[in-house]
Amino acid sequence: MFQASALNKRNESVQKLYRMLFGMMTLMLIAPVLLILGTLIAKGGGAISWEFLFTAPTDGMRSGGVLPALLGTVWLVMVALMLSVPIGVCAAIYLSEYAGDNWFTRTINLAIINLAGVPSIVHALFGLGAFVIFFGFGTSILAASLTLAVMTMPVVIVATRESLQAVPQAFREACWNMGATRWQTIRRVVLPNAITGILTGVILEVSRTAGETAPIMFTGAVFFTPFLPESVMDQTMALSLHLFVAATQVPGIADEVPFGIALVLIGLVLTMNSASIAFRMWLRGKKKW
């Protein structure tokens, strides 16, 4: 071993080489995206103004703002959250606090993985067949939000389950030993210590839901409507679909309009994501046990 210094040196340079190689690969993964984001900002930045955000499209969508699409996305996300968060959180409580380690639980986990993995266009078909036609909601915010809720529920479930399981088992056992029911234990000890983690997951879901396009195309979002949504039974425009339409269906549109829309959408999504990440890091710094 002691005479092997030449070998060690060679090993060290090989080591450096690999380090550089993998570092480069990481860089090449990230750099193009940053370049692209830069281009988006450079080309679309000029379009962004208060007016762009708060007026309706004019001149056959060739100019004007994105207000109806922005509001529509807010509606879709809100209604979807109202459905998916309660169900998702309860499902996570079941999986973390009640379910045993058996085939049944594995089936549920597999279903969750599949719910997240089924192509978004298949979710769209499901939403059309089930909510629009079978349940008779028509193409409406309700049908689109239900579709989005089913599709993005795994995000809430996974985040909630993780934060529930981060609460040490000893706390639960201490409560059980005092004669607490499972629910009393969950309510007084488990949930209060997991709630911030759950919120992180919810923010993440907002970002996922806002960016989806395919599932809402045939269930509730329309290319253009001059009306702002007033109830869940209305059709609506949506930011993501609006970008698709502006980029592919509107001839003669000024270049900066779709870039502006893309920038608004990506800004919304990345802000939500960053908030979720920042929240998570802040949490990690707060020690409670």
Binding site: A174, C175, W176, N177, K288, W289
Partner: peptide
């Protein structure tokens, strides 16, 4: 069973202060 447990106090060797 919860009523039974509430009548029996237990102290296990590993101390557990609840996070409240």
């Amino acid at each position: 069973v919860y009523a039974l447990r509430s009548r029996i106090g237990v102290v296990f060797p590993l101390p557990v202060g609840l996070p409240m």
